[in-house]
Simulated scan of single mutants.
Amino acid sequence: MSTKNKVLDILIQSSPSFVSGEEIAQQLSLSRTAIWKAMNELKKEGHQINSTTHKGYQYIPNHTLSQAGIRRCLVQNLLPSDLTIYTVETTDSTNKELKKRAIDGDLTPTLLAASTQTETKGRFGRPYFSAADGQGIYFSFSMHPRRELEEIAQYTIISAVATSRAIERLTNKKIQIKWVNDLYMDGKKVCGILSEALTDIETHTISSIIIGIGINLSIPQESFPLELQEKATSLFPNGKALVTRNELIAEITNEFFYILNTIETNPYMEEYQKRSFVLGKAVSFTRGNTHYQGVAQSINEKGELVVLLLSGEEMTLSSGEISLEKIGY
């Protein structure tokens, strides 16, 4: 770990109290000059640090991503003991990066967060609007569970419920879910979730699963492209977020692993269905070359949507093959 990041760890662990430069220097066995240089580097990166002659340095929580900032808000006994956290300024895709690592043999549970993404995408490779630095949250985590292939939908559902719970807990915003992986607030999309798996052909199991979460945090409503302004929004559409990115990433991670740890008794599937604004609504979709209309009836344990067609026949839709074209008609 670099000197700069070691200093940041001490600042965050001490926050909201002040810590003197001399104390930091003694802890790290470094000169006061080295500490001063590290402070300047951190400030240039966007970290907010108060400094006074008599008290020393004080870290102010802010939207600058950092490993220490995320770890500060994690509940360690909920998490894999070997969970690794990385933060980067820019990447093409956090999912893509973690898939590369898994393919290269890195099987450590990993959380990767980025300030910006250049190749954001959703299901079926659709583009996903990525906000300017600081206005969005983009992160993924990878696990290597050796589970059955059909269980990937379960991870998407858990992610959706965990993210909804975390957002509501920290912001008091009401979140609903559009089957299978989109979160909505006030009738507009605020978050997208993309689950991807690497499979073992010989055992027909999931060798690695990567879950990517993109949240519109504080994008001013007028900053969305015109074609999205009626369809998408952010948690704080006035542009002034009341929760930091580190805090929200950590709370989602805490909730995700809490559900996994209590999966036999946690009512996450019941909650997923209660949050759904699709169930009971008229829906339309296309399978193959045929267009269908019906009413969404339920979501089964595999995360499939059960639709009662106008013909009276029931059809089960998999999230991997179908995207709803319209809800209500």
Rank of each mutant, 00 (worst) to 15 (best):
P127T: 07
Y128K: 01
F129N: 13
F129I: 08
A131N: 14
D133M: 09
G134C: 12
Q135M: 13
Q135W: 10
G136H: 09
S140L: 08
F141S: 00
F141C: 03
F141D: 01
M143C: 03
P145W: 07
E148S: 14
L149I: 10
E150S: 15
Q154N: 13
Y155D: 02
T156Y: 08
T156L: 14
I157V: 15
I158K: 08
S159C: 06
A160H: 15
V161F: 09
V161D: 09
V161K: 07
V161I: 06
A162K: 07
T163Y: 03
T163P: 04
S164E: 12
A166Q: 00
A166T: 01
E168I: 01
E168V: 00
L170S: 00
K174P: 01
Q176L: 08
I177N: 01
N181I: 02
N181F: 11
N181P: 14
N181V: 15
Y184I: 04
Y184F: 10
M185I: 06
M185S: 10
K188C: 02
K189H: 01
K189G: 01
K189M: 00
V190A: 10
C191L: 13
L194H: 10
L194M: 03
T199A: 04
I201F: 15
E202K: 13
T205F: 06
S207P: 03
I209H: 07
I211P: 05
G212L: 04
G214T: 09
G214W: 05
N216K: 07
P220K: 07
P220F: 13
Q221A: 15
Q221I: 12
S223L: 00
F224V: 04
P225M: 11
E227P: 09
Q229V: 05
Q229I: 13
K231S: 13
A232E: 11
A232V: 05
A232H: 04
